Simulated scan of single mutants.
Amino acid sequence: MQITLWDRVFGWMRERATVLAVDESGMSTVEYAIGTIAAAAFGAILYTVVTGDSIVTALTNIITRALDTKV
């Protein structure tokens, strides 16, 4: 039986797919990227909530009451 060029190409592709399916060396980079994106999104949402009028008014009232205490 003679091995053709296509047999070699498909054999190489099968071996490469097996190595890629088992190799996890790039996983930590992807996890860091997803974590960074999630943290940035959470920060943007938190900033939007905290700078909203109701929160700013509530915090201002709390600080004003704390500073206006009479001894």
Rank of each mutant, 00 (worst) to 15 (best):
G35A: 12
R16I: 04
A66W: 04
D53Q: 13
D7N: 13
T36Y: 08
V56D: 03
V9P: 00
D23Y: 02
A40N: 06
G11Q: 02
W12G: 13
A33E: 10
T36N: 14
A38K: 15
A66F: 10
V56F: 00
K70E: 14
T69Q: 15
V56Q: 10
L59I: 12
V49H: 02
T51A: 08
Q2F: 09
I62P: 01
I62C: 04
E31G: 01
E31K: 15
S28Y: 12
V56Y: 03
I45V: 09
A33D: 07
A66D: 02
S54F: 14
F10Q: 14
R65T: 13
T57P: 00
M1Q: 05
V49R: 07
S54H: 12
E24F: 09
D23R: 03
A44C: 08
V30C: 08
T57H: 11
I63H: 03
R16H: 07
R65I: 10
M1W: 11
K70D: 13
I55F: 11
M1E: 07
I34P: 03
G35F: 07
G26F: 03
T18R: 10
L59P: 01
T57Y: 05
A39G: 07
T64N: 06
G11S: 06
A40C: 09
L67V: 06
Q2D: 11
I3C: 07
T18N: 14
L5M: 12
L20A: 15
A41S: 08
V49Q: 04
I55H: 04
S25F: 03
S28Q: 15
A21E: 08
K70Y: 10
Y32D: 13
A38Q: 14
A40I: 09
G35Y: 08
T18I: 03
L5F: 12
A39N: 07
V50Y: 12
S28N: 14
F10T: 01
Y47P: 00
K70H: 11
E31T: 07
E15A: 11
L5D: 14
V9R: 00
M13P: 04
G35H: 13
G11L: 02
N61A: 15
T4K: 06
G52I: 00
M27E: 15
D53V: 04
W6S: 14
W6R: 13
W6F: 10
I62Y: 05
I45P: 01
I62A: 11
L46D: 05
D23G: 01
V49C: 04
T64K: 05
A39M: 12
I45Y: 02
Q2E: 13
A41Y: 02
M1P: 06
S25N: 09
A66K: 04
F10N: 11
D23C: 03
L46C: 10
G35W: 06
G26T: 05
I37P: 02
T64D: 07
A17L: 14
D23I: 01
V22L: 11
I63P: 00
T48Y: 14
D23V: 00
T69S: 08
A44E: 01
L46P: 00
S54W: 11
W12P: 00
D7W: 01
G52D: 04
R65E: 12
G35S: 12
G43P: 00
T51C: 06
R16D: 03
D7I: 05
G11N: 02
R16A: 10
R16T: 12
L67T: 08
S28C: 01
M13W: 10
I62N: 02
T36F: 09
